[in-house]
């Protein structure tokens, strides 16, 4: 589904990614673990199409297509979904307006009929129920005044509505207490399936106890240093990133 080959990228003149190779098949869950500044967030932003990053070498192919050539909205329509580390607050735009606009934009691009207000509301309420959320958050302005957990759940709700094929979870655990983490992880797990792939980006092993990956990769200094199974995450939890030459204050 996703093939990243020798990806190099910079922000301004500063190289961040220095040759990433990664291949993800449908149905797989991959985790990328790495210390602060290793390039984890840069990778997720490049995959989602954020401006301000320059790919200097390498390629990213998604379902046989050059992903890097597409603007962010086309990537979303093609099934790429980034769950944000810090979901953005948008005052003055109600969550339901935002979700309906996004869903219809994606449906339009996919050649599907747009939903009217009633159809949308019905679908949104169903998804909320499935994810164990109240539909009260549909009425509020996008993420404004939401707790950390509510913001992440709102992102998962967007994911459930937009029905992506490749989901990138960027530090989804940051700012969540253990209960919120469990709820978000349950939401993510309910969306796992043989036709979907996930890339879970995290600093800590904690999240991976709830969203159990098939493959774990260690990212440091802009390169994947080591790959393995889910046991690699536990090893990192016990020993830290020191063996990769990273010196993190505890």
């Amino acid at each position: 589904m996703l093939t990243i080959t020798n990806l190099h990228a910079s922000v301004g003149d500063r190289p961040i990614l220095k040759g990433i190779d990664l291949s993800i098949k449908a149905g797989e869950v991959h985790a990328i673990m790495g210390p602060n500044g290793s390039g984890k967030s840069t990778l997720s932003y490049i995959l989602a199409g954020r401006e301000g990053y320059t790919v200097t070498e390498g390629s990213v192919t998604y379902k046989g297509e050059d992903l890097l050539a597409l603007p962010p909205e086309r990537r979303a329509a093609a099934g790429v979904f980034l769950a944000f580390q810090y979901p953005v607050e948008i005052p003055g735009v109600s969550n339901s307006t935002f979700l309906k606009t996004a869903l219809n934009a994606v449906r339009r691009q996919r050649g599907e009929a747009e939903l009217d207000a009633m159809q949308f509301l019905k679908l949104a309420r169903t998804k909320c129920k499935q994810l164990g959320m109240t539909d009260e958050m549909l009425k509020r302005a996008v993420n404004v005044g939401f707790s950390g957990g509510e913001k992440k759940r709102n992102d998962i709700l967007q994911m459930a509505l937009l029905d992506p094929r490749l989901t990138i979870l960027d530090e989804t655990d940051s700012g969540l207490d253990i209960d919120a983490l469990r709820i978000v992880a349950d939401g993510v797990n309910s969306l796992r399936g043989p036709e979907r792939a996930m890339l879970v980006i995290t600093h800590y092993q904690r999240l991976l106890s709830y969203i159990v990956p098939d493959h774990v990769h260690v990212l440091a200094f802009g390169k994947i240093q080591r790959s393995g199974g889910k046991e690699l995450a536990l090893e990192l939890e016990a020993r830290g990133y020191a063996e990769f030459g990273v010196n993190e204050a505890a």
């Binding site: 199409g49 954020r50 948008i90 996004a102 869903l103």
Partner: peptide, 12 residues
Amino acid sequence: AMFYLRARGIDR
């Protein structure tokens, strides 16, 4: 906010 909306499929 622009990127957030575009990442959800809404064009520029």
